[in-house]
Structure formats: C-alpha cells, structure tokens
C-alpha cells in the first residue's frame, strides 16, 4: 500500500514533466514555423492593403488589389512570365534529352575512358556555371548569344546533377528487362525509350521539379547575360523593378514580388508532398 502510493506520487510529476516538455517542444516548433513564414505573411499583408497600412498592423484595415494593378502596369510582368516560362521549359526539355542519353551511356555501356569521363562530368557539381560568369559571358558574345533565351539556358543544359541522378536510377533497373527487349529485336535507343525511361519516371519527376524551381529562381547568370525586356526573366525584371532608384512604393514592390513567386508558390502549395519528396529523392542519391 505504501509502496503503491509512493510510486504513484513519483509517477505523476514525472509524467507531468514529460507532458510539459512535449508542450514546450510543440510550441517551439510552431514558433519556428511562424518565424519561417513571417516574411511571406508580411508580403501578403502589405500587398493586399493600402499603402498607409504597410507598416501599421490593424486587423480592420481595408483590403485592396490596387497594388497588384499598379505593379502590373509599371513593369512588363506578362513579358517576364513568358521569358521565364520559355527559359525554364527549354532548359528542362534539353536537360531531359541530354542527361538521359549520357546517363544511359554511363550506366549500361562499357567504353574506354568511361570512368574518367564520368569524373569530368562530376566536376560541374562543384564548379557551377554561375561561378564562371566572366568566361561564359565571353563565350556567349563570341557565339552571338548575348541577350537571348538560349544564352541563359545553354550553360545549364548538360547538367551533371541530372546525369548523375539518372545514371543511379538506370543502374538499379534489372538487366533481364533489357535482354528481353533485345530478344524482341529492339536496338539500344528503343531499349532506352521502352525500358529505361518509363521505369525511371519518378526520377524524372523529381529532377524536373528541382530543375524548374532552380531556374525559375536563378538570378546571377540571367542578370549578366540579358539586357533587354524581351529576354529578362522574372527574377531580373523584379530586381530592376524594385531597385531603390526606380522609386516605386513599398506595397507595390511586395505586390510585384508576390506576382513573381506566385506560380511556383501555388504549385508548391498544391503539390507539397510531391515537391518535398522530389527534393528528398534527388538528395539521397
């Protein structure tokens, strides 16, 4: 009896402490989440309210879309959307083709110098094109590709990351499937198209999402290589639009900022699980 009550008095504070710890942890996790969302929350606040409420937080403040209308009329956002869209899709399509072919070579063909060539490919993981802006700009001007969408995309199209990712995936596909296709009379390219590509679909989705978000957000190289409205992507357009010299109002800048991130943000909110899993998938390999 005494032993039981003794253990009961010991048990309760311990359980309560545990519970308190959990509550504290949950609170901390939520607080951090709120902190991490704060910039976005603020951007929404400022963009949807008249400018006198930009720095005053009043729950009764009237909502407005004027800031978006202003931003849209002050900078050629439609054109920037088009440029970014063309750049991102052209990069993605060429990346898929080039990386698939190269990854297939590395995964399933034995040729002299293969390992050395693969090591040379991996160099790009370390030395990304944005590090070599000076020489790449020189090359682009020799090729006459300065201020073109192709010029923005070309240095990224043969992606070491894509080649590496697809090679790892192709290597896990059983060779028996390939042999079966060969018996049916398929050539190497047919085998690639009918066996490897369909089975690597999750990798393509993962790589595609990572690539699109990377290039949608890329800034330094596009800034260097473009110098007109007809080629500038959203990021570069936004930087010019929001530069202090342009003298644009604060809420209008946040509205423009939201315009620039909207497509990717909406896609992310809709396909959150897919995004997170893609980045995970791409990271583990």
């Amino acid at each position: 009896m005494t032993a039981a009550s003794h253990s009961a008095t010991l048990g309760t504070p311990r359980r309560r402490r545990l519970k308190f710890g959990t509550v504290l942890e949950t609170g901390a996790a939520w607080l951090l989440a709120l902190l991490w969302l704060l910039p976005l929350i603020y951007a929404f606040w400022s963009a949807f309210h008249p400018s006198e409420y930009a720095t005053r937080f009043d729950l009764m403040a009237p909502l407005t879309l004027d800031n978006f209308r202003e931003a849209w009329s002050q900078a050629p956002f439609a054109r920037y959307y088009l440029n970014t869209f063309m750049m991102v899709t052209s990069i993605l399509i060429v990346q898929f083709i080039l990386c698939t072919l190269a990854a297939y070579a590395f995964a399933r063909f034995e040729f002299r110098g293969r390992d050395f060539a693969f090591a040379l490919v991996l160099v790009q993981l370390m030395i990304m094109p944005e590090v070599l802006i000076v020489e790449n700009y020189r090359t682009m001007s020799q090729l006459g590709l300065v201020d073109t969408i192709t010029g923005i995309g070309l240095p990224y199209m043969a992606s070491a990351f894509g080649i590496f990712l697809l090679r790892q995936t192709f290597k896990t596909i059983p060779k028996e499937l390939e042999d079966a296709a060969r018996v049916e009379g398929c050539g190497p390219l047919q085998i690639l198209w009918k066996v490897y590509v369909p089975l690597a679909k999750p990798t393509y989705v993962a790589y595609g999402l990572v690539s699109v978000s990377y290039h949608w957000n890329n800034f330094l190289w596009p800034l260097v290589i473009t110098n007109s409205q007809t080629t500038r992507p959203l990021t570069v357009g936004l930087a010019i639009f929001s530069a202090p010299e342009s003298g644009v109002d604060w809420p209008i800048i946040t509205a423009g900022t939201l315009l620039a991130v909207a497509p990717l943000l909406i896609a992310f909110l809709l396909f959150q699980r897919q995004f997170v899993q893609s980045f995970m998938h791409a990271g583990i390999k």
């Binding site: 709120l34 991490w36 949608w216 957000n217 936004l238 991130v261």
Partner: peptide, 13 residues
C-alpha cells in the same frame, strides 16, 4: 511546409 517554403522562393524576391 513552413520550414520548406523559403527553399522554393527566389532569393531576389
């Protein structure tokens, strides 16, 4: 989602 959101936003924005 909150933790991950900054990753998909462009630095410039």
């Amino acid at each position: 989602m909150s933790y991950f959101t900054p990753t998909i936003l462009p630095m410039i924005a």
